[in-house]
Amino acid sequence: MRGLLGIQDLPRTEIERILDTAEAMVEISQREIKRVPTLRGRTVINLFLEPSTRTRVSFEIAAKRLSADAINVSSSGSSLSKAETLADMGQNLAAMNADVLVVRDRTAGVPKMLADRLPMPVINAGDGCHEHPTQALLDVFTVRQSLGTLDSRVVAIVGDISHSRVARSDIHAFTKMGAEVRVAGPPTMLPAGIDVLGVKACFSMEEALDGADVIIMLRIQRERLEQALFPSVREYSLTFGLNLRTLALAKPDAIVLHPGPINRGVEISGEVADAEPSRILDQVTNGVAVRMAVLYLVTGEQA
């Protein structure tokens, strides 16, 4: 695997190879000494040009548990604030012999642009409204852990589909793994023609959750209120929020995922977030294992 820019171009066999590798990584984090020597002497740079806690910490922990040196770079205080271009900054990091570059940026395509110019593997940690491949991989991993196979499982993704890189990567990942994917949200948040990705667009929770095995709730960003995509937080919550009443629309053993950070009482009620079907904290645990797997696999195949 030469870097990881998105799920869209990843064949199912490669997804399965990453998931199988992650299975072996889970155990390392359960040890008293949580470290294996695999990437000793390798340097992983986490270039996070958009705020992130969970993903950045997860990549940093993943690198360190493989014995790599992890260096975090954020935009504030970096030379980008001195108007250096991203491409130049990447060249400089390459000149310091960094072995892997993990990139998060608010603009779609930045990881690809850097991967095209730099000698080391690039891992996309979220780019604009495009993709967030490691999130999708950990979502698929978490579902596989709970339900076994994904074939013919019904997965409902609810929220702001238009602006969500998680939704896009999840759609590619779950459809490739054989699941039936539905997306739901207010019409202002569902892109026209989304069905070309092989998913069914739903305009109510009743339609989306009927017979669902997996419910993925997306974070609602309050700043979207200003764009008038929905009238009020309260109305959104009543129409597309997941609570004990709407959860009952899905299969009795359905599981609930959320990429975090959660807005309690907006897209998901506290009682559902903390309830038995919730896999939200398992996702966080599995995220470290999946990112360890990706770091291990991309560092094996130079050139």
């Binding site: 299975e23 072996a24 155990e27 695999t38 291990y296 696999l297 094996g300 195949e301 130079q302």
Partner: peptide, 23 residues
């Protein structure tokens, strides 16, 4: 025990083997 992650002859040798879980 799977020793793949401890080997001294795996890194930089092309396509990486998928490790088995250790128990």
């Amino acid at each position: 025990l799977d020793v793949t992650l401890y080997r001294d002859d795996v890194v930089g040798q092309g396509r990486r083997p998928v490790p088995n879980p250790t128990r």
